[in-house]
Simulated scan of single mutants.
Amino acid sequence: MKLRLLDAADSRRCAELEEVLFPGDNPWPEHAFLSEIAAPHTLYLGVSEGDSLWAYAGMARLGPEGDPEFEIHTIGVDPSHQRQGLARMLMDELMAVADAHAGRVFLEVRTDNDPAIALYEAYGFARQGIRRNYYQPSGADAYTMLRNARSSRR
């Protein structure tokens, strides 16, 4: 398995995985991935083997240069490859980027997604609040989570 940057050619596969992973919550379409992958302030990564993309994650860098913040937009792993460490591979790289810039990291996660919550808590994220009816059309609630800035430069 190889960790790599995503490109426009990966957008269709990411959208296919979104349909499988988030069917009741307005999964991202291909054009959303195309836009996000191309944006200069985002980092989109994937884990692949040969021509097969098995996992993806995206994060945006926000705020001023001297005090950046990061927001995880999405992370997903093909159900046939879950529990094999792919999400951790992606999170390791995303957190290394945030740490290199000493930036805080924010995200939202469904309140009933226990595996994802456990993953984020293992990386130092803490629950900050709840966004009621955040996911549509299901109406599921989301926790807002924050990981305080860390620095590999200090």
Rank of each mutant, 00 (worst) to 15 (best):
A55H: 13
S138P: 06
Y120L: 01
G63D: 04
R12H: 06
R131K: 14
R154G: 13
T144I: 10
D67R: 15
I117T: 01
R154D: 08
W28K: 02
Y135H: 07
F125C: 02
R104N: 13
H31G: 08
P115V: 04
H73C: 14
P40L: 09
Q128L: 09
L43W: 06
G124P: 05
P27N: 06
E71N: 15
D114M: 08
F106M: 15
R61Y: 02
Y56L: 14
I75V: 15
G129I: 01
D112Y: 05
Y44T: 11
S80P: 02
R61W: 03
A98T: 05
E36C: 07
H73S: 14
N113M: 04
A142K: 01
L90V: 14
N148P: 07
W28G: 00
P79H: 08
G129C: 02
G76V: 11
S151F: 04
G85N: 14
K2N: 15
D7C: 12
N113F: 00
N133K: 13
A122V: 01
N133Y: 08
V105T: 15
T42F: 03
R61C: 11
L5M: 11
I37T: 14
Y123R: 05
S152Q: 10
L45Y: 07
L3R: 12
E19V: 07
Y134D: 00
Q84C: 11
N148D: 08
H101S: 12
A142F: 00
A8I: 10
A116N: 04
D67T: 11
Y44I: 06
A98V: 03
R110F: 03
C14R: 05
R154E: 07
G50K: 10
P64D: 08
G103E: 02
A15V: 03
A142S: 13
G124R: 08
R4T: 15
Y44C: 15
I130A: 00
D67Q: 12
G50E: 08
P40Q: 08
Q136N: 07
L6H: 07
A98E: 04
A55T: 14
A38V: 06
L53T: 10
S52K: 09
L62R: 12
A96Q: 12
G66W: 09
A102N: 13
M91C: 12
G85H: 12
I117L: 01
R131P: 00
G46I: 13
P64F: 04
